[in-house]
């Protein structure tokens, strides 16, 4: 695998107003090539309005073995969910 080009993560925004979503990854030597490859690989079916490419090595990920201390404390705090209110009928979506 020593000959492989650096890995990049690709994020695409499908519609105005929505957020960029992670769609996958690809190999490229630099940002320009990553952008071209992202266009070719991930927007063939008119999926995108905007593309972000990020070097995978620049992404800081949480460590799976530390998921206890990170996520367990929020498990028993149901009062943080907005589920104790009656939503007026006029509000269709929340």
């Amino acid at each position: 695998m020593a000959n492989e080009l650096p890995l990049w993560e690709v994020f695409i925004r499908g519609q105005h107003g929505t957020a960029h979503r992670h769609v996958g990854s690809l190999h490229a030597t630099d940002a320009e090539m990553a952008m071209n490859n992202a266009r070719d690989v991930y927007t063939r079916r008119n999926e995108g309005l905007s593309i972000w490419v990020v070097p995978s090595s620049e992404i800081v990920a949480s460590i799976p073995s530390k998921k206890g201390p990170l996520f367990d404390p929020s498990k028993d705090k149901i009062y943080r969910h907005p589920s104790f209110y009656n939503i007026p009928v006029e509000v269709k979506k929340i």
Partner: peptide, 8 residues
Amino acid sequence: PTLEEDIA
């Protein structure tokens, strides 16, 4: 040679 080039 690579998937990216193949599709392009």
